[in-house]
């Protein structure tokens, strides 16, 4: 996301929440380290502690409004959210529907999300045909050429 314009803000509460979350991760790492062996906790304590310290400095800077501003997003937020939802559903359906069927569903769903120019019938048919060919080709390459046992699925094979 390198070409997104920078928004200027004094105090970014979103960024503060993210920093607090990172502090929680570091704190949790330190907490968990207490249950580890002497050797096992050396590194988590060193770098968990360092991360907590650095996050505290960042938090102070953010509260004073001196931190670098966040990147402002361009484009459609619902499309972004939909993509993540589709990817989650795709992965969840893989063991149920199998690689090919789940792959086709995921492929077409993301194709629809990425489409900004409308879907005249000839274009749609062409893209669907290509999509089927791409999924079949990838499945064939991985399954037969590279001997990767792709998920077979409980409903379809």
């Amino acid at each position: 996301m390198p070409d997104m314009p920078i928004q200027t803000r004094q105090r970014d509460w979103g960024a503060i929440v993210v920093t607090l979350c990172l502090m929680a991760v570091a704190g949790w790492a330190l907490w968990e380290a207490q249950r580890m062996s002497e050797l096992g906790k050396l590194f988590p304590i060193t770098f968990g502690g360092l991360m907590l310290t650095l996050c505290s400095i960042l938090l102070v800077k953010q509260l004073l409004g001196r931190s670098t501003p966040r990147l402002e997003l361009e484009g459609s937020m619902p499309r972004r959210a939909l993509l993540v939802v589709v990817m989650i559903a795709w992965i969840a359906l893989l063991p149920v529907l199998g690689f090919v069927v789940a792959g086709l569903l995921g492929f077409f769903a993301i194709m629809a999300i990425a489409g900004h120019d409308g879907w005249p019938l000839p274009r749609l048919l062409r893209f669907v045909a290509i999509g089927i060919a791409v999924v079949a080709l990838i499945a064939w390459i991985f399954q037969h050429l590279l001997h990767v046992p792709l998920p077979a699925g409980r409903v379809f094979f």
Partner: peptide
């Protein structure tokens, strides 16, 4: 076109990461 590139990348990310240890 993006309509092909995006699902193509998504397909490769799923297949590629699955192929590492053959698990989800």
């Amino acid at each position: 076109p993006k309509e092909m590139l995006a699902p193509g990348i998504a397909l490769l990310t799923v297949t590629g990461s699955f192929a590492i240890h053959n698990n989800l």
